[in-house]
Structures are given as C-alpha cells and as structure tokens.
Amino acid sequence: MSIETLKVVGLSGALSTLSRTTTLVQSYLDSFASHGVSQLSLLSIAELAPYLAQTTDPTALPPALQQAVAQLSAADIIVVASPVYKGSYTGLFKHFIDLLDPQLLKGKTVLLAATGGTELHALVLEHQLRPLFSFFGALTVPATVFLKDSSLVKVADGSSYQYQLAAPLERIALSVSQALHLHAGPPPLQHAVNAA
C-alpha cells in the first residue's frame, strides 16, 4: 500500500473541543501529512459526547457514532490520545471504545499519546492504553508521547495552543516514522534471503 492511499484517523479523548490533547493529535496528523499522507481525519470525543451519553447498545448507534465507527474501521493507522483525569483516560473515551466490536481494530497500527498535569500520569500509556488496544489485536507503536499540560500554552487570542519546546514534535515524528515502518511490514521473504 502506498503512502498516498493510507487512511489515518486521530481520536482525541478530550472533553472540550479546544484542548491540549486535540492539539497533540493534530500534530500527529500534521506529521503524517509531511510524509505525503493525504487521507487524514480527526474524531473528537467532545463532539461525540452528546450521543455517547445516551447510547449503551452497540447495535443501536446514532448516525454520528455509526460514522465515527466506520472511520475507525476504514483506517489503516489510528492516533489515540486522552487527557489523564484521576489517573486514567476519560470516561467518555472508554465508553466509546466499549461500543466497538472486538474485531474492529484487529491488525491496525495504533499510536498512543496522553496529556496530564504531571509526569506521574505518563504510566497510563503503558499500563492502560497499550493493554487496551492489545486486547483489540491492534499493533501499538513503541514510541509514545506524554505531554505535561505546561508543555502547551494558549496563544494570545485563546484560539489554539502552541508548544513551549520542540522536543515533543521530535518525539511525535519518531512515533509517526515507526508507525509507517510497522504498517509497511517486513520485506518479502525472497528479498530478505537475497539480501543475506
């Protein structure tokens, strides 16, 4: 599969439309775009929240949730990020994940990220998010990104966030590079034998 045909979907678990977490997910999508990926989309739990709050039956999803699930199903690569509240990802994020068919994400490449007030919350990446997506049979990328809230500050007009340092963007680039490599898979066996 060529870079141009890859479908990458970002999923932000933030509960507000303007958030550090969504900014982080958008940075991942921008990094994929720099590699030539053009089929990029962003799902926001904040925008899905009104529908999630009234949905408990995975077989009776409202149209907005059906569309979100369809986007994830069609994705080749998924970027997942959540703010950390009370030591875990957001409840509505988990509720959305609970509505997914266990086979939906099987074999998909997933990048993991989170935001929080202190580095202590970074454990959510390895102890909660990675096991969660391993349950689905997804292939999680080794390099994760955790951002302290202080790493992103609002611009003067309050319309968006900007990074205090360049280091997170470098880590995002590494994670994206790993995802593209992982998604491409190993070289054909005959090629590997010839190379030896």
Rank of each mutant, 00 (worst) to 15 (best):
P83T: 08
A173C: 06
S16T: 15
T17G: 09
F133Q: 02
F133T: 02
H127G: 01
T140P: 00
T55M: 11
P62L: 06
F32A: 04
L132P: 03
S88R: 06
I97V: 15
D149A: 10
H181Y: 15
T90M: 07
A173Q: 14
Y85I: 06
A166V: 08
S73W: 08
L6S: 01
I172W: 05
H121D: 10
Q67A: 15
T23C: 13
L165S: 13
L125E: 10
K86G: 03
S12V: 05
P62H: 09
P58H: 05
Y28R: 04
P63K: 09
P188N: 10
L24F: 04
Q26R: 11
I3N: 09
I172L: 05
L123A: 14
P83F: 01
G116T: 07
H95N: 12
L65R: 05
I77K: 01
G158C: 14
T115F: 02
G87M: 08
S82C: 08
L180C: 07
T17W: 11
T55N: 08
L104N: 07
T140F: 03
G137N: 11
F32I: 05
A53W: 01
V141I: 12
A179N: 01
S175C: 02
A166R: 06
A167R: 07
A196T: 10
Q54I: 14
V84F: 07
Q39P: 01
A74R: 10
I3L: 15
A64C: 01
L125H: 05
F93K: 00
G36C: 12
L61S: 03
P102M: 04
P63W: 13
I77H: 00
S16G: 10
T59D: 15
S41Q: 14
V176A: 04
H181C: 11
D76I: 07
I78S: 03
Y51E: 13
L29K: 13
G107C: 08
S12T: 06
A167C: 06
L100I: 06
D149K: 00
I78Q: 00
Q39L: 12
L111E: 00
R20Y: 04
D157S: 12
E4D: 14
T55K: 08
P62Y: 13
D98P: 01
H127D: 14
S73F: 10
I77M: 12
V193R: 13
A75Q: 08
L6V: 01
V176I: 03
S19L: 12
A14M: 07
A53Y: 07
L65A: 00
